[in-house]
Design a protein around this nucleic acid. Structure first.
Lengths: 215, 215
DNA sequence: GAACGAAAGTTACCAATAGTAAGTAATCTG
DNA sequence: CAGATTACTTACTATTGGTAACTTTCGTTC
C-alpha cells in the first residue's frame, strides 16, 4: 500500500492516496522533507525552490508548508542540521585531546572547513539569506554553533583565571570568522583546508602581533 | 524644464518627459538611484523591492536596470558604498595613531560597529544575500574591506619579521568576525558598541589564551 | 522646414515562485 | 450506511525580478 518512498521522484510510480485512518501515520514526515531539500540543494544549487523540494520528496507544496513551514523555516531547519554536523565533526576532531591547544584548535577549524566543503550548496543556501526577512538563517547557524562554544570558552577562561564574560562575543566572532573564511575558501581559494586552517588558528591563538610578542 | 528632483517622490509634480537631445544629460543618474535605494531601505527595511527603489527615485523600473543593473548589482553597489564608509570611518578612528596597537584596534572595531549601527537596514540588505545567486553580496562587502586591510596586515607582519602570507586569510577572517559580531550586536545585544569592541579587540590582539600566556 | 534617426523613458508584459484556499478521497465512528 | 476527520491535491492569488516593445522629444540632414 505504501507507495515507494525509497529514492525521491516517486511521484510517477503510484497515484497519491489522500485520506488515511484517523490515527494513521503520515506518508512523508518532516525529516524526509528535509532530506529531500538537502538532495535538491546539493544537486541544483542554492536557488532551489519549495516546489522543487516538494517534488523531490514526492509530495506537493502544501505538505512542505505543513511539515516544515515557509522558506525561512526551511532554511532554519537546514541550518540546524548543518551546524549540528559541524559541531559534531569538530568535537570528534578534538576528541583525542580534550584540552584546548593550538593543535586542537587547528583540527577544529579544519574539520569545520571540511564539513562546509562537503555541503557546499547547503552552506550557501543556509547562509544566503531568506529573501525577504533579515539574515536570521545565518544567525541560526551561528547561534547553534555558538551555544556549545560559549560554554567551552567560558569554562576555559575561568580555568585560566581570566574574565569569562567575553565568551559569548568571542563565540560569535569566531563563528563569523569561520563562516567568512569558509565562503572565501569555497569560492576563491584553491588551497587545501589544512593550510587555511593553520593560518586562522595562528591568528586565533597568538593574536595579531604573533607569538614573538608576549606583550 | 528640469522636473523637481530635490526630494524623491517627485513623480507627482511634473509629467515625465521622455526623449531628450542626442547628447543630453540623463534625468536621473546612477548615484541618485543608489541614494534613493538607501532611503527606501532605511525607511522600509531590507525587503525593499526594485519597484520601490524606482518609485523613490521618481523613475520607472527599467531605468533602475539601466543605471545600476539587476538586484544583485544593486546589492553589490550598495555594499561598495557601505564598506567605503566603514573603511573611511575606521581610518579616521585610527588616524591619530597610525601605528597598530591594541587601542587603535579597539577604535577601529568600534568605528565599524557604529557605521553598521547607523545603517542598520542597509547592512541587513547587503549581507542578506541576493535571493537566487550565491551570497556574493556579502563577499563584495568583504572584499572591499579586506583589500586595504590585507596590505596593512602584510606590511605590518613584514615589519615584525613575521610571515606576511597570512594577510589575506586573516583579513577575510577579521571581516567575517566583524560582520557576525555586528549582526549579533544589532539584533540581540544591548550593550554599547565600545564594550563589544573592547572584547573583540582583546581576542584579536592577545589571542584565545589571553595576555598572561606568552607561549 | 519636413523627414529621419537616435536618445531617453514609459507602459505593459512575462515568468518564477512564495504562500493559501478550497475541494476530494479514504478511513474511522456511531 | 451517514457523518465527521484526516490527509492530501488541485488550483489559485499576489508579489516581484526582469524585459520587450512602444512613445515622445529633439538634433540633423537634404
Amino acid at each position: 500500500m505504501k507507495q515507494t518512498v525509497g529514492m525521491g521522484k516517486a511521484s510517477v510510480t503510484t497515484a497519491r492516496r489522500p485520506g488515511r485512518p484517523v490515527g494513521g501515520q503520515l506518508e512523508v514526515g518532516r525529516e524526509q522533507v528535509l532530506d529531500a531539500a538537502e538532495r535538491v540543494i546539493a544537486r541544483e544549487g542554492a536557488g532551489a525552490s519549495i516546489d522543487a523540494v516538494a517534488q523531490e520528496a514526492g509530495v506537493t507544496k502544501p505538505i512542505v508548508y505543513d511539515r516544515v513551514g515557509g522558506r525561512a523555516d526551511l532554511a532554519d531547519a537546514l541550518a540546524e542540521r548543518l551546524s549540528d554536523r559541524m559541531v559534531s565533526a569538530s568535537a570528534a576532531a578534538m576528541a583525542t585531546e580534550p584540552a584546548l591547544t593550538k593543535e586542537s584548535l587547528t583540527r577544529f577549524i579544519e574539520a569545520s572547513l571540511e564539513v562546509v566543503g562537503q555541503h557546499r550548496n547547503l552552506f550557501l543556501y543556509v547562509t544566503g539569506g531568506t529573501t525577504d526577512q533579515t539574515a536570521l538563517g545565518r544567525l541560526t547557524l551561528a547561534e547553534r554553533s555558538t551555544t556549545p562554544m560559549t560554554s567551552v570558552l567560558a569554562q576555559w577562561r575561568t580555568g585560566l583565571g581570566q574574565d569569562p564574560d567575553v565568551a559569548r562575543a568571542w563565540a560569535f566572532g569566531i563563528v563569523g570568522m569561520l563562516q567568512m573564511v569558509s565562503l572565501w575558501w569555497l569560492t576563491q581559494d584553491e588551497r587545501p583546508a589544512a593550510s587555511v586552517a593553520a593560518q586562522i588558528s595562528e591568528l586565533l591563538w597568538h593574536g595579531l602581533p604573533g607569538p614573538n610578542t608576549p606583550s
